[in-house]
């Protein structure tokens, strides 16, 4: 926080009014409306009868919804490991002095995050296809693992591998580059002399990654985890494009379930309840992940650093007061 400059409340208000108003109108008013609709038996017309907590009672018993919630958690876990984990490894590789064409890898790596999720779903659906897909073509024609395409796995049936794993791969693929760039940025702020001295001391690549880089960019990794949780709790597009939640409801996620309830079953009241539930559950998961990270990933060094930071701020404030009293400003 700044101590020397303190704009008037009026100025802050003037600056913040427009963005906050726009944000609240577009993001929170519909959510509040959904909160209200969630208490009605609204079937998608002008008639909305108050139905009390009936929708919430239904939600608690709704196996499909909780199964979807489980699938969202699966996606979160898969993407934290896949996106952030692989991105971290790739960053370590890219930063090695043995690697060439660094800028090309960065440019190409980030490319998938520029295309729409619907398009990604469409492309991956074809990659997974049993008879004409790329994966099976590779397995059959290149590796000769199967006699023909018809004997190769039907990936989108979820028989060869769990369907949620199959669906997380495109998501991971799409956003590795995004996290790679964020981690790269944190990486670039590490003092290279630390790494060099570690190398001279005989630390190998893995040790350097685990004991030096990881602790130094931990905060950035926290940010990545938060973004990853937020993104995957509301996952929709690529799953909609690939399986529509199928086979059956085995790959259903919460947002898609809410969408289906609203549009396919015209249970808009219940659909609204689901939206509210997604929001609340996402908050809980984010809160939970922060708590876990703070408890298990903070070591004494961090605590010490936080203490020092607080002390420094306090000192600065005191100095400020002193200066003010001295009438220097």
């Amino acid at each position: 926080m700044l101590n020397t400059i303190k704009p008037r409340g009026r100025v802050i208000f003037a600056y913040l009014f427009l963005p906050v108003a726009l944000f609240v109108f577009t993001v929170f008013v519909p959510l509040v409306a959904a909160l209200y609709y969630g208490f009605t038996d609204w079937k998608g017309g002008p008639v909305k009868n108050f139905s009390g907590l009936a929708n919430y009672a239904q939600l608690f018993k709704d196996e499909v919804f909780w199964h979807s919630f489980g699938n969202n958690l699966y996606l979160v876990a898969a993407c934290i490991i896949g996106q952030i984990g692989i991105a971290f490894i790739l960053v370590m590789l890219i930063n090695s002095k043995l690697v060439k064409l660094k800028s090309i890898h960065r440019t190409f790596g980030f490319f998938p995050s520029t295309i729409s999720a619907l398009c990604v779903g469409f492309v991956w659906k074809m990659i997974y296809d049993q008879r004409t897909g790329l994966i099976n073509w590779f397995l059959v024609d290149v590796l000769h693992k199967y006699k023909g395409m018809k004997d190769a796995p039907i990936w989108l049936n979820g028989e060869a591998l769990p369907i949620m794993l199959i669906l997380s791969i495109p998501l991971i693929w799409q956003y590795i580059g995004y996290y790679m760039v964020i981690i790269l940025s944190a990486f670039s702020s590490i003092d290279t002399s630390v790494l060099e001295s570690a190398e001279i001391d005989g630390a190998n690549g893995l040790q350097r990654a685990l004991y030096i880089v990881f602790p130094l960019i931990k905060n950035t990794l926290f940010v990545c985890v938060t973004l990853c949780v937020a993104g995957n709790m509301k996952a929709f597009d690529s799953i909609y494009a690939m399986t529509e939640g199928g086979p059956g409801t085995s790959s259903m996620v919460m947002a898609l379930y809410g969408y289906n309830q609203s549009f396919k079953s015209s249970n808009l009241g219940y659909g609204s309840t689901i939206s509210v539930a997604i929001f609340v559950l996402s908050l809980a998961v984010i809160g939970g992940s922060q708590f876990l990270l703070n408890t298990y990933m903070t070591d004494d060094y961090d605590k010490e650093e936080k203490r020092i930071q607080r002390k420094r701020e306090k000192e600065a404030r005191a100095a400020m007061k002193k200066r003010m009293k001295g009438g220097r400003i």
């Binding site: 577009t26 008013v29 409306a33 919460m254 809410g258 309830q261 808009l268 997604i278």
Partner: peptide
């Protein structure tokens, strides 16, 4: 509040948004 905006499930809120 702004951070919570990241958690809004856009697709299941399309109808309320349209109504507003």
């Amino acid at each position: 509040m702004f951070l919570m905006g990241m958690l809004i499930p856009v697709h299941s809120l399309l109808v309320p948004t349209y109504i507003i």
